[in-house]
Write a protein that binds this DNA or RNA. Structure first.
Length: 219
DNA sequence: GCGACAG
DNA sequence: ATCTTGTCGC
């Protein structure tokens, strides 16, 4: 797919990165998807030493069949700093997306979206950069608190921070640790939850990111 | 100051 | 994220 013009540079300091996040956070839009979802692209990046491998897995929906996959390798550009994950992974993700032939209606990342200290997790950064629908499904909590969660698949509760609902804690599989779903851009929380549960089969992680993670592993 | 802390 | 074997439970 064709990538839009860059919104900013990536070779910035942590302080500059925070400033960029604050500015771009104002561009995040919560809105109903304008197109029916036929394909979801799962995005993931694996790292070994100072090298990364990105994988994009496009899955048909609701069939959940693998339609296309692309990978891309390079040198890790930025250290891992809690709250600045997108500056480490976005430079690795964009070149991979440029090689994608199938254009999905929505993107799914293995990260937080609005459930971020500045309301601008990786899912928001990718969505705003592309100007396309995106949401995040993280394996663990980053910020926020929530009420006790039921143990059955489909159970969910709000994820809250500073009196605001920033996402949902969702049980994608009975008696297994839940995932943390939050919107990235141009999608509603309800749709993000629906797509998460609708693309989950027998594992905790939904198929798009589960397959992307498998394909991104560096051997 | 102390503890927490997506991947 | 990555480093790593066995083990408990459905």
């Amino acid at each position: 797919m064709t990538l839009p013009p860059p919104l900013h540079r990536w070779d910035v300091s942590p302080k500059e990165a925070i400033g960029i996040q604050k500015a771009l956070a104002a561009k995040v839009r919560t809105e109903t998807l304008e197109h029916p979802v036929r394909h979801i692209a799962g995005v993931d990046v694996s790292i070994r030493g100072d090298r990364f491998q990105t994988a994009i897995a496009v899955i048909s929906y609701p069939d959940l069949e693998l339609v296309e996959k692309v990978t891309f390798q390079g040198d890790v550009p930025f250290p891992y700093i809690p709250g600045l994950l997108s500056f480490r992974e976005m430079p690795a993700i964009l070149p991979a997306l440029a090689q994608l032939n199938t254009v999905p209606e929505v993107f799914m990342t293995d990260s937080q979206g609005l459930a971020h200290p500045r309301r601008f997790g990786l899912a928001c950064h990718l969505g705003v950069w592309l100007g396309r629908p995106c949401f995040g499904v993280a394996k663990t909590r980053f910020i926020g608190t929530h009420a006790p969660l039921g143990m059955n698949k489909g159970d969910l509760v709000d994820l809250v921070d500073k009196e605001q609902v920033i996402g949902s804690v969702v049980r994608t599989r009975s008696n297994v640790k839940p995932v943390y779903v939050s919107i990235g851009h141009r999608i509603t929380q309800l749709e993000a939850i629906e797509l998460t549960l609708g693309s989950t089969t027998k594992y905790k992680i939904p198929e798009p990111t589960r397959l992307a993670h498998k394909f991104s592993k560096i051997l």
